[in-house]
């Protein structure tokens, strides 16, 4: 496994896609993240695990710019993104889903995906008001691309339904489709399998692996379903009480005494 990590750093460009450098985040006296340091290469699937309250979602919120770290720094494609607004990071190619689903409920499924193409579409209000050929052509492209994504996620039959009328599992998939619309280089998935039954989880696992391979993007996923994580993640980070306690491949993590301690505790 150690060998594998070294090949990662040599095969990808010399700077990591994402790097957290001694990143700490405190809410008053609460230590959400403490001196977390890790880096991610391009085109790989990473897992972020840890017991409840370990600070996994806070890391996502830091990477996507919702929180500004108290100290330390975050680098994306070699550039510091500390304190940058979320929408700018999304434009640069960080897509994410949410633990508690945040869809645009009143919009249709198709419209939900189409919103993610907003900043990629040229033309201002003028072209929209006069409905120029330029505008219609762009709108058509966005529509087709969105439909492609829906096809990929298996939501094509629900395209014209309102997002809120979808069953839970499909809502999770729609969130992923929407994040993919950004054309991200880094995709953050916050508990994609939460609330899904075993067969749905299996299907989703394959889907995530497939998307990651075909679109050649880096994925970082938070998940409590260890089977899913161990099966598809090439590298796993383990958090406990806001600090990074282990990183490595699946086998390495499973035998790591500190990880076992964090999850199961130790005998006195």
């Amino acid at each position: 496994m150690a060998q594998m990590t070294s090949t990662i750093t040599t095969t990808t460009s010399n700077q990591p896609l994402l790097k957290l450098d001694n990143m700490s985040l405190y809410f008053g006296g609460v230590r959400a993240n403490h001196q977390v340091t890790f880096s991610m290469g391009e085109g790989l699937l990473y897992g972020l695990i840890g017991p409840n309250g370990a600070g996994k979602s806070t890391i996502f919120n830091v990477i996507t710019g919702l929180y500004t770290p108290t100290s330390g720094d975050v680098f994306f494609q070699g550039e510091s993104i500390k304190g940058r607004p979320s929408y700018e990071l999304a434009k640069r190619g960080i897509g994410r889903t949410f633990q508690n689903i945040r869809l645009f409920k009143e919009l249709t499924v198709l419209e939900n995906v189409m919103t993610s193409f907003f900043h990629q579409t040229p033309g201002g209000y003028g072209s929209a008001l006069f409905r120029t050929d330029f505008y219609s052509a762009n709108e058509k492209i966005v529509r087709e691309k969105s439909l492609e994504l829906l096809e990929l996620m298996g939501l094509i039959d629900n395209a014209e339904e309102k997002a809120q009328s979808l069953p839970y599992g499909k809502q999770r998939k729609l969130e992923m489709a929407r994040a993919l619309g950004l054309n991200p280089t880094l995709l953050l998935l916050d508990e994609p399998a939460a609330g899904l039954n075993p067969s749905e989880t299996k299907e989703l696992t394959n889907l995530i692996a497939k998307i990651q391979k075909t679109k050649k993007i880096s994925v970082l996923l938070i998940e409590h379903d260890m089977k899913l994580v161990m099966e598809i993640c090439e590298k796993i980070f383990v958090l406990d009480y806001g600090t990074l306690i282990a990183e490595g491949g699946a086998a390495e993590i499973q035998s790591n005494p500190r990880v076992i301690e964090a999850y199961l505790g130790v005998e006195d």
Binding site: A90, L103, F104, H119, Y125, A128
Partner: peptide, 30 residues
């Protein structure tokens, strides 16, 4: 005018902001 705005990407964006501002930001919308 309002109907055209509603049907354009700007209208979709406005609804997105109404429904969930944080998610809208994550879609690259200011």
């Amino acid at each position: 005018i309002v109907k055209r705005i509603r049907e354009s990407r700007f209208g979709r964006t406005m609804f997105a902001i109404k429904e969930n501002e944080i998610a809208a930001q994550m879609m690259g919308i200011n």
